[in-house]
Amino acid sequence: MTLMTIQDAARRSGLSEPTVRYYEDIGLIGPVAREARSGHRRYGEQDLDTLQVLACLRAMGMRIEDMRTYQANRLLGPPASGEQRDLLLRHAQRVETEITTLRVHLEYLRAKAQLWDARARDDAADEAEAAARVQAMLPSLQAVVR
């Protein structure tokens, strides 16, 4: 079994070294093997697998508490499948809501850019059309801001 330094584990997982240490400190990973003489951490393939999973969950915006639940369910295996599914579906719903919000923001930005483009070209008709589009979007924008 090949053991890795924290630098190697961090690089291969996509996490920073401080994050890897933090995840060990709070029990999301580990305990991690240590060299007897130096006390330096040494990560195995299973540790790396766990770090890569955590990196993905973190990238999706999952909270630490939900990461803990996810990790506990991974260890439980099939008996925790339903809870694992529900946890992931809750996060999928949150991501879907974020995507919807970002689409509204994107459309608003494009409409405002169209308005300013019309002003730069001194095109009153296009400016009025863009202003109407911006006005029409305000209720949607306000709804996602709340």
Rank of each mutant, 00 (worst) to 15 (best):
R146Q: 12
M60F: 13
R110W: 07
A120W: 12
T97N: 13
T19G: 04
A72S: 14
L3Q: 10
L106G: 12
M67P: 00
A131N: 05
R103F: 10
D66A: 11
R85W: 15
Q71M: 15
P78V: 09
A128E: 03
R133K: 12
S16C: 10
L48R: 06
M137D: 03
A132V: 05
R133H: 12
R94E: 15
V53Y: 06
P78T: 08
Q114L: 05
A72Y: 09
A59I: 03
R146C: 06
G27S: 05
M4E: 02
Q7Y: 13
I29T: 01
M67T: 00
R63W: 11
D47I: 01
P79W: 08
P31N: 07
A120K: 09
R41M: 03
T2E: 15
I26N: 06
Q93G: 06
L88E: 02
A92L: 14
L138C: 09
Y70Q: 02
V145K: 15
M60P: 01
A36Q: 15
T5Y: 10
V20S: 00
E98P: 01
H105L: 13
R12D: 13
E96T: 10
T5C: 07
A125W: 08
E24S: 05
G44M: 02
E45R: 15
A92P: 04
P31V: 05
D126H: 01
R42Y: 10
G39C: 04
S38V: 04
A80E: 04
V134C: 05
N73Y: 13
Q135V: 02
D126E: 00
L88D: 01
M137I: 11
M1I: 11
R21G: 02
A10H: 00
T50D: 03
R11M: 13
G30Q: 02
R21W: 14
